[in-house]
Design a protein around this nucleic acid. Structure first.
Length: 100
DNA sequence: GCTATGACTGGAA
DNA sequence: TTTCCAGCCATAG
């Protein structure tokens, strides 16, 4: 699998996250580990930073439920409007986490 | 080929 | 609660 194809897989998976749910970078890496052979949460983060435009990036958070840097305000608003359970300034991962 | 870097992670302080 | 650390691995220079 080429790097470009891996990017496509990551983005298409993010697009498949239903409203009201989120996935962590590590969860995405795990979900694609079979097809890609890769398993690096860091890489997923890098991909979102570079190619995150055009997909619901606010549904992707780190394993602690923290928002991505630089867009915390916007992410929080969007998550709230979609019904994602929040605990203060971070996502309630126990309820919101989703697996394909 | 090697080093630095990073939208990460889980655990420790 | 936040910060720090070691492990992690593709990408950039």
């Amino acid at each position: 699998m080429t790097p470009q194809e891996y990017v496509e897989e990551v983005l298409s998976l993010v697009e498949r996250i239903p409203e009201g749910h989120v996935m962590s970078y590590g969860a995405i890496a795990d979900a694609l580990a079979d097809a890609s052979g890769r398993n690096s949460a860091r890489q997923v983060g890098t991909i979102m930073a570079r190619h995150g435009g055009g997909v619901p990036w606010h549904r992707v958070v780190n394993s602690s439920g923290r928002m991505p840097p630089g867009h915390e305000q916007e992410a929080r608003e969007r998550l709230l409007s979609e019904g994602v359970p929040l605990k203060g300034e971070h996502v309630d991962m126990a309820r919101a986490s989703w697996r394909p």
